[in-house]
């Protein structure tokens, strides 16, 4: 399970890193999306992944014996996803507006035309 996740994270990071180096701004943003997914999966992998051992105890019962799955990373990921969702939607609106007003979708052009 961990190996599988590690491979998916590696693939996500590889594609994300590749897209990040492209000149098209939209691809750069896609690269960021993939990178953030990779980061979230990485946190998930750090959660001590043991199947069928939820960290839940009935009232009055003692705490379950380790190893059990750690719930905290899921909470962290949820927060990170929510934040990432907000920031990315902002970025998309920004890129869209830049594309309409500046008529560029190219990192080189975007940076070289200043000062406008």
């Amino acid at each position: 399970m961990t190996l599988l996740l590690a491979c998916s994270i590696a693939i996500l990071f590889a594609i994300g890193g590749y897209l990040l180096m492209r000149r098209s701004i939209v691809r750069v943003v896609f690269g960021l999306v993939l990178l953030s997914h990779g980061a979230n999966l990485l946190i998930f992998t750090s959660a001590n992944l043991v199947p069928l051992r939820p960290p839940i105890a009935r009232a009055g019962a003692p705490a379950p014996e380790p190893p059990f799955a750690d719930p905290l990373p899921s909470a962290l990921i949820l927060t990170a996803i929510v934040i990432g969702f907000g920031v990315l939607s902002f970025t998309l609106v920004l890129v869209r507006r830049a594309a309409r007003e500046l008529r560029v979708d190219d990192v080189e052009e975007l940076c070289s035309e200043r000062p406008r």
Binding site: L35, T91, L94, L102, C111
Partner: peptide, 13 residues
């Protein structure tokens, strides 16, 4: 907008 995009992309990274 142009400066904003550079800032946003690097910050997200």
């Amino acid at each position: 907008l142009a400066g904003g995009i550079v800032y946003v992309v690097l910050s997200l990274l």
